[in-house]
Write a protein that binds this DNA or RNA. Structure first.
Lengths: 266, 266
DNA sequence: GGCTTCGTTCCGGTAACCGGAACAATGATT
DNA sequence: AATCATTGTTCCGGTTACCGGAACGAAGCC
């Protein structure tokens, strides 16, 4: 009935089942998945069987549930290796880590959120690390707001009118406050946050643009809140913005305006 | 007709399309995929659209095809982080690399082959590196034969009676020769090869067993053939076998026989 | 030991999907 | 430059493969 709107429903279900494993716990059971996706247990069961057969999932004997399998790892290893965003960012992030002394991260926009693609960990004994590969919403934390601020208007609205869940006590859940904040991020070109996603953590982030000028991700410098204070952030911002700019340009971004006159028409 | 034998065909198609990206080139088009999987272009097109919508694939403007997307990277990052095989192997591989001076690798068995999950690169200037995340057949190279040799009989037969493609001029494609070789691998507990998968490369590998005693992967020490010669291999083998053994035990393997009396019944 | 919840299987009705064909657009070939 | 081949995409009707409610045995919880 609401069929071919974008591909096929059957395929969408399969994708959704798989992607559930990037959000939640390591191990999921048939019933839990069926509940979350609003599907019958029978359907979910069949899909899980197929994915297990192909090695994308494995059955976990101890938790009696399903987990990501070797084929998923293979797929992702390949995707990570070929990710132009990650490859362009990593050398820059290493420099940025050395210059700031704090952990640096690269996030990519995905449908309904963003994920950390990788990080360069601080060498200090007390440091912050992030969960690579887990999906986070776009309305909280610096990397997220950075991406959100530079999204095309309709995508931005979709997020703003959606549910603004609370991650910590400092998460901004008021739509108007969030709008004001996004305007500010757009004005200054970077975002900062303290303990919005994770208590005790602070970070500054700047957006990374694809060749067509859309925000495809963000890089951040992050660490314990008592070390990453106002003074530290002030020091980080120029380094951060320059780094983000270099990555964007490495991805073909020309600076600000939508690409045109790109083709060799002369 | 040949329906629910193992899950659903629709889901299988989706998985197959995705997995095609772990074997072949970075970018694939609708027609190429349809040809390889024996599907109509329309079907493939719909699946690709859905997967793109979910971020698992992205359309590549330059190659005018589809590539793995950020959601795949996220999925894989998570899978890699949670891979008990990889986590158990990496510290041991680092030691093994230091002890041997050559690149060490960890492979996992997947349906229809194996993939490199990760590697610890040699510090030497001339070194060998492998393609992490790409699927390779089970009948050639040391890591592959290692896994194959310790597979349950019926799975082994499935591979032996399947197509034994040629990767290099030194690939063993004769079934009887291969059988003899597998017997030898089982006898000594490790495998070695010279230039079977990649010309100029040599390696020794040992199997890793899961908690139930089945071969779930293999580790290897590999390098340029002129450096990894008979003498070097002789030096590597004991280190290699001990390392593999430690990894297997970390995964719950008790040694040789199928687990029984595992439960705390006393 | 009763109760719930789990994963799994069965089966028929149906609607969602498949595939052939047609389309426009791109790039190769002569 | 014109043709040809191949690509990605869309359309639409027939039918097949799938969906889902229900029932099953098993496992854990109280």
């Amino acid at each position: 009935m609401l069929a071919d709107i974008n591909g096929t429903e059957a395929a969408a279900r399969v994708a959704d089942v798989l992607l559930l494993f990037t959000d939640g716990p390591e191990s999921l059971g048939v019933s839990a998945i069926a509940r979350q996706l609003g599907l019958s247990k029978a359907v979910v069961h069949r899909i899980l069987r197929t994915l297990t057969d192909r090695g994308l999932l494995i059955t976990d004997p101890v938790s009696r549930g399903y987990r990501l399998g070797p084929a998923s790892a293979a797929l992702g290893a390949r995707a990570l290796r070929e990710s132009t965003l990650r490859s362009a960012a990593m050398p820059v992030l290493r420099e940025l880590q050395r210059a700031t002394g704090e952990t640096t991260t690269i996030s990519a926009r995905v449908p309904d959120g963003r994920v950390y693609l990788d990080q360069v960990e601080s060498a200090q004994e007390i440091k912050m690390t992030v969960e690579v590969g887990r999906r986070f919403p776009l309305h909280a934390a610096s990397s997220s707001t950075c991406i959100l601020a530079f999204l095309p208007p309709h995508e931005q609205e979709a997020v703003l009118t959606g549910e603004l869940g609370t991650l910590t006590s400092r998460t901004v859940t008021d739509v108007d406050a969030l709008r004001a904040r996004l305007a500010e991020v757009r004005a200054v070109g970077y975002a900062h946050s303290i303990g919005e996603r994770q208590s005790g953590a602070a970070s500054v982030a700047a957006p990374v643009f694809g060749f067509d000028g859309t925000a495809i991700g963000a890089i951040s410098v992050c660490g314990p809140a008592d070390r990453v204070d106002d003074a530290a952030r002030e020091r980080f911002v120029p380094l951060l913005c320059e780094a983000a700019d270099r990555i964007s340009r490495a991805l073909g971004w020309r600076g600000g305006l939508p690409t045109q006159g790109d083709q060799e028409s002369a």
